[in-house]
Structures are given as structure tokens and as C-alpha cells.
Nucleic acid binder design. Structure first.
Lengths: 127, 127
DNA sequence: ATTGTTGCAAATATTTTGCATTGTG
DNA sequence: CACAATGCAAAATATTTGCAACAAT
């Protein structure tokens, strides 16, 4: 049953995700980890990111650019994607889970949740 | 300045999108169009879907499966993705544009809009 | 006649996977 | 020692693009 063993690569990826708020892609994680682990491969990064997401230690985000982004902050929160510079930011905002009720009214299926991405201009690009 | 000319392929794609509520992928559009237009190529389907989206005659949807889906109904509305069968449905629901205000409170950038996908079990899979 | 559009194939881009080797428990 | 994890390269998937032939205006 596939016990999970320690690996310094996975640990480095996990630590990097916890250290940044940049919501990096797999490629970006790879580039940042490469300094410490010059022989790490992109395949290993993908494998471990998938594993971390499965284990609930990271979130996979879709930021609308067709590439997966990852977030070490697994608390439920909302994201914002800037149309100017493409950066992805966390939003500090009140929960909006009530929209599930709105969606469920008059719908015969079962609404289990939602995925939201806000977009616009980030503080820097707005200027 | 690149005037857009008529093409029966584009017209067939447009008509197919208007005729279905299935939110097809490019591949699905291709397979459905092929009956009428056996020599159409997938590249042409992609080119025309992109064109229709640019012209505002179709929507590109992200349904969470990593593949682009397309919708001929360009009126603003919300979508639901079933975790059971993978189908994508329209939701008849009250607008929830007020979430932009909630997101914008305490955010220094400019919220221009949002992208929401609801998920759960469709009426059939719920049974 | 001009030039937008197509079919086809090759090219990109992103992510996954097979396999021999290495590392963990 | 058993087997999970790695590095590497090749494969799989989704989408775009170069180009010569074709079609719309």
C-alpha cells in the first residue's frame, strides 16, 4: 500500500511552497529548487507536487493561464489574477459560501462546492 | 486589417455551438462537424473557435479538466461540472456579481470580474 | 486578382510515464 | 533487503503554426 518515504527533494518542494506567496507553476518551483538541488528533474517536481496535492499539503490552482499553479497555503481562501502582470495574489475577504445555496436553488443536482477566481488589476498595475 | 470572410467550416462550428448545451471541447466539436465536413481538420476547428471567442460569438470555459470547453451561449451565466460523469451544465440562478464587492473590500487593486465554476453531482449522478 | 481560410503536418507546451539506478526504512 | 523515489528521456495530451493549395470577395 505504497508507504510514503522521506525524500529531500519533496521536502525542499514543500518548504519552498510554504515560503512563497507567489503561487508558482511546476516550472517555477523547479527553477527555484534547482539552486539547492542541481540534479533534481522536472519529472520529480511534477510527481511530488501531485503527491502533495493528494496528501492535502498543497493546493492546485487554475489561474486562467492554462498552466497549473500551486499553493502551500491549504486553508480555504480566494485568489486574484492580475490581467496586467499576470501575478496571482491571495484575497483577504469574507467567505462567500452562500453562493452555493444560490446556485442550488432550482437545480436538481447536488452542489458540493465552487471554484472562484477574481481578476482585474493588481495594486501595482492599477497605478 | 484582416477582414473576416465567410467560410462554411466556421459557420458549421458556430451552428453546432448554438445547437448544443453540452459545452463541447475542440475535439468534440471536431468529431461532430466531421460528419458534414469530412475533410475538416482539427487545426481549423481550433482556429475558428479562437476566432469566435475573440469576436464574442462563443465563450471559452474552463471546466476544471484541463481541456478548454466552448459555449455558443454568450449571455453571462454560470456553469456546473459533475464530478460523477464529467458533464457540464448551465445553472439557472440569480446573478452573484455582489461577490466582486466582497472581494474588493480591503483589496488595493481593481476587481474587474470573476470566474466561477460550481461542482458536485448532476441530477442523474445524484440518484 | 487579392488575400483570408483550409488541410496537413510539424512544432510547442505542459504534464506524465517507463525504466534502470539510488536512497530510505 | 524490499521497495519507494529519483533522474533522464521518451511518450502522451492539448493546442498552435508554417505553408502551399483553395476559396471568398
Amino acid at each position: 500500500m505504497a508507504a510514503i518515504r522521506y525524500s529531500k527533494q519533496r521536502e525542499a518542494i514543500r518548504m519552498y511552497l510554504l515560503s512563497t506567496k507567489s503561487h508558482p507553476t511546476a516550472e517555477a518551483v523547479y527553477n527555484n529548487i534547482k539552486n539547492e538541488h542541481p540534479r533534481i528533474s522536472l519529472g520529480t517536481v511534477y510527481r511530488n507536487l501531485n503527491l502533495l496535492v493528494e496528501q492535502g499539503e498543497a493546493l492546485r490552482l487554475d489561474c486562467g493561464d492554462g498552466v497549473d499553479h500551486f499553493d502551500g497555503d491549504t486553508r480555504p481562501h480566494y485568489h486574484f489574477a492580475c490581467r496586467g502582470c499576470g501575478c496571482v495574489m491571495d484575497l483577504e475577504m469574507d467567505p462567500i459560501d452562500h453562493i452555493d445555496q444560490i446556485a442550488g436553488a432550482g437545480f436538481d443536482g447536488e452542489i458540493q462546492g465552487h471554484r472562484v477566481l477574481f481578476y482585474g488589476l493588481c495594486p501595482d498595475c492599477r497605478k
